Structure formats: C-alpha cells, structure tokens
Computed example of a mutant assay.
Amino acid sequence: MKNTFFLLLLFPFILQAQQGANRESFKFNGQSIIGDTKEQVITAIGKPDKVSKDFNEMDDVAVDKFHYGGSILWFERGRLVSWTIKDERVFLVYNDLTIKVGEPAKILEKPFPKAYEGQNSSGRLSVRLQLSSSVITGEEGLIDEFINFYIDPVSLNIEEIILSSY
C-alpha cells in the first residue's frame, strides 16, 4: 500500500478518461490521418520538410519520421502511429475546436473537463486524455492510446501535443 501511494506521487498528472474522446475525434491539420500510410498522409497534409529513420527497440520495428517544422509524425509498419506537435504550423481539430501550440490551455477545459481538472502543478503541467478507443488489439497485444497536452507553467499556454500509445 505504501509503495502504491509513493508511485502515485511520482506522476506529474492525474489521468482521467474522457467520454467521447477517441482517436477518430482528433484531426491533424483538419485531416483524419491516424493509421494512414505515408502516401495518404502526404496527400492529406503535404510533403514533409524532412524524412528520417529510427528504430523502436521496444516493439523491435523500424520507424520512419516525417518532420513538419518542429513537429514529427511516426510511422511503424508503413502506418502513422504517433505524433508530436511542437509548433504553430501544425494543429489538431477536435469537433469544432482548433487546438494549437501557443493557445491558452484553458481552451481544453470545456471539451475535456475531467482531464483539465486533473492537471497538476508538480513536474510538467499536462492535460492527459486516455482515448476511449484505446483498447485496440495490435500485433503485440492490447494498446492504450493517450493525447497529452503539455502546458508551459509560466504562460499556461499549450507548448506540446503528443499522441502516444503503449
């Protein structure tokens, strides 16, 4: 029990599942591209500034990375699996809300009240959404997906948006 309490203190945020938030609800630059091939992504949002290669040791798979300014899209097995948004050139759309780096984090309060309420001032500020479609079967088993909105502690603006899976 004591160890569980200690581990909870290490988390810089409080995780709250958000009803209605799923991977299909978020559009990258207004386009539904998660799971798309590299060719489909280029058709939807344009040619990347740079392409690089990496390796995901955890999944033992090659990774292609598309760079759009400071933002990166990750492809595994030819499909888009993750992204990191770090500049204003790239944005997310959730329903009618456009979410950009540099916007006040307060814009997340209305669409994601539970997650917004769970942000914490210890460590890096963030609003974390576990996507409702996150229990999907991957080649290696079940996958959990999250969108993290990292917040600058001084300006309280969104500084980074990450779609990740575990």
Rank of each mutant, 00 (worst) to 15 (best):
A44H: 05
I99T: 05
S165N: 15
L92R: 00
N157T: 15
Y116W: 08
F13D: 01
D49E: 09
I151C: 13
Y68H: 01
G30V: 08
E57S: 13
W74P: 00
V41W: 04
N56C: 03
L15P: 07
P153M: 03
D54V: 02
E103I: 02
Q31K: 13
V81N: 12
R124W: 11
R89G: 15
F28R: 04
F149W: 03
I158R: 00
I161A: 05
V81E: 13
L9Y: 04
V81I: 11
I33S: 00
F28T: 03
Y150D: 10
T43Y: 11
I42S: 05
Q31T: 03
E159V: 04
L108R: 06
E88V: 11
N22K: 12
L9E: 12
S122G: 13
Q16D: 08
K114M: 11
E140P: 07
K53L: 07
M1V: 12
F28N: 01
S121T: 12
F13E: 06
F91D: 04
I107R: 04
I72S: 10
S82E: 11
N120C: 08
S121R: 14
L10R: 14
N148K: 12
S122D: 12
Y166G: 13
L129Y: 09
F75P: 01
V154G: 10
Q130C: 02
G141D: 01
P113G: 05
G78Y: 07
V81F: 09
A44Q: 05
N29V: 10
R128F: 08
I45D: 02
Q130W: 07
N95H: 15
D54Y: 01
N120T: 14
K38V: 06
M58S: 15
V81D: 12
F6N: 12
I33W: 01
Q31Y: 04
M1T: 10
R23L: 15
E117G: 15
K106G: 11
K114W: 08
K86C: 05
S164T: 12
E24Y: 08
T98K: 11
D152C: 06
P104L: 02
V41P: 06
K110W: 10
E109V: 02
S126V: 00
F5N: 11
V81H: 06
Q31F: 01
K38W: 03
G141S: 04
S121N: 14
I72Q: 11
A105P: 06
L15T: 06
T84G: 12
P104T: 03
L73W: 05
V81G: 06
E57F: 13
V154C: 08
G30E: 02
G20R: 14
I161K: 03
E145Y: 07
I99E: 02
F66Q: 00
S71H: 01
L92E: 09
D60M: 14
I158V: 04
R89F: 02
T84P: 05
S52V: 05
I136P: 00
